[in-house]
């Protein structure tokens, strides 16, 4: 795992070079095993969960990445206490969402109660000309920080992106950089990447514990959200 403080140009060139290095690594024999665990899940639907405020950009990003065959349902709640009980009502579904910190704290309890998988979670804050993002990843989302940094590198603001993993880090295929659409906002790019994870189309990427793009991104925030991808199994 590595830490980078980079300009946008440096980020792009190093990501490509690092990918090539790992592709030639003898560990690549393990890749089939690693990737076999990340095959698309048998999901009945992909749900976008919402509490109160709308996040149209985030939703657009999810739809942009999802295949036409994926059934997407949008679920909207207005009360915090409805969240926890919702988790168990749709077994076989992937639930993707972005919500305020208090709501996610409650939602996380619902996941635990239902033995649901939390494939990825992220804390996102922003202010004038900067954003910060802190992801907790699993094997199903390894390298979300790197992938999201690629999204952010399209934009002019300063960003600090961090990732910590709950698992033994998997060898990567070297394909850290992929062609991405041009996103209108970081929320749209986030929705896009989380949708890839939720639909099982994710390949593990290099875990970077910290990537700072542009000048300092440590200012006081004015907006704050949590994002997540979870999977509620059929019991």
């Amino acid at each position: 795992m590595t830490s980078f403080h980079l300009s946008r140009r440096e980020f792009l060139s190093r990501s490509t070079a690092l990918g090539a290095t790992i592709a030639l690594n003898p560990l690549s024999g393990l890749l089939n095993q690693a990737e076999a665990m990340l095959l698309p899940r048998s999901i009945s639907s992909l749900q976008i969960l919402r509490l109160g405020e709308a996040h149209a950009e985030f939703d657009n990003g999810i739809r942009l990445a999802a295949s036409a065959a994926t059934k997407i349902r949008e679920l909207r709640f207005n009360r915090l206490d409805q969240l926890e009980s919702h988790v168990g009502k749709h077994p076989g579904s992937v639930i993707i969402g972005i919500m305020n910190d208090g709501a996610f704290t409650d939602f996380n309890e619902g996941l635990r109660l239902r033995k649901a998988d939390l494939l990825c979670s992220g804390s996102h804050v922003g202010g004038k000309d900067f954003t910060r993002h802190y992801f907790q990843s699993t094997a199903a989302s390894q390298g979300i920080g790197s992938a999201f940094a690629q999204v952010i590198s399209q934009r002019a603001e300063s960003s600090l992106i961090r990732e910590s993993s709950f698992h033994e880090v998997l060898p990567t295929s070297g394909e850290n950089m992929r062609a991405l659409p041009s996103f209108t906002s970081w929320e749209q790019g986030l929705g896009y990447q989380l949708s890839q994870i939720g639909s099982g189309n994710w390949r593990p990427r290099t875990v970077r514990t910290s990537t700072l793009l542009g000048p300092d991104a440590h200012s006081t925030s004015t907006t704050t959200h949590f994002s997540f991808v979870s999977f509620v199994a059929r019991i």
Partner: peptide, 27 residues
């Protein structure tokens, strides 16, 4: 089997902390 959780994605909801410490110290 269903009551023994070791997969990282199952453990992740148990690992959410809010205190000023690294997650790895309490995983």
């Amino acid at each position: 089997n269903e009551n023994v959780l070791v997969a990282p994605e199952k453990i992740a909801p148990y690992s959410k902390i809010m205190i000023p410490a690294e997650n790895s110290q309490h995983q």
